[in-house]
Amino acid sequence: METLKSCPACGEKKMTRVLQAKDYTVSKNTFDIVRCASCNLLFTNPRPEAEQAGYFYKSENYISHSNTQKGLVNKLYHAVRNITLKQKTHLIQGCQQGSKNLLDVGCGNGHFLHACQQSGWNTYGMELDPDTAARAAALTQQSIYPNLEAIPNDITFELISLWHVLEHVYELDAYFKFFKNRVAPNGKLLLALPNSNSYDATYFKEFWAAYDVPRHIYHFNPETIQSVAKKHGFKLKTQRGQIFDSFYIALLSHEYKTGKKKLLSSFLIGLLSNVLAFFKTGNYSSNIYIFEHA
Rank of each mutant, 00 (worst) to 15 (best):
A184F: 14
T281Q: 10
K235W: 12
D173R: 05
S273K: 05
K262T: 00
F278K: 15
D154L: 12
L251W: 08
Q69G: 00
V183D: 05
N283Q: 13
H216I: 05
V213C: 07
R215G: 03
N186C: 08
S246I: 05
K177Q: 08
A115L: 10
L251F: 08
C116F: 14
A209E: 02
K230Y: 12
L191V: 13
Y203L: 02
P194V: 09
Y145M: 06
T156I: 13
K230G: 05
Q69S: 10
Q117F: 13
K22E: 01
V213H: 07
K231I: 06
V169F: 09
N74M: 12
F234R: 06
T16C: 00
A79W: 15
Q87K: 15
H114A: 02
Y175L: 14
H114E: 02
L76V: 14
E49T: 15
F179H: 04
I155G: 07
F204R: 01
E127Q: 04
L42I: 04
E60Y: 10
P146W: 14
I92T: 11
N61F: 10
A184V: 09
I243H: 10
V80F: 15
I217T: 07
E49D: 14
S266M: 01
F56Q: 09
Q141K: 15
A294M: 07
K5A: 13
K235F: 12
K88T: 11
D23M: 07
E158R: 12
P146T: 08
V275H: 10
D104P: 06
K260F: 03
A79S: 13
A294R: 02
A37W: 12
S285N: 02
E149T: 02
D200P: 01
H216V: 06
A134P: 00
Y57M: 11
S99M: 09
G125A: 07
K5L: 14
L236A: 08
Q93Y: 10
L148Q: 09
V183R: 06
S59A: 05
R182S: 04
P152T: 05
P222M: 13
F176R: 09
F204T: 00
W163D: 08
E171R: 12
K237R: 14
L85E: 07
N122Q: 13
S196M: 10
M15C: 02
K75W: 15
V73C: 04
L139V: 01
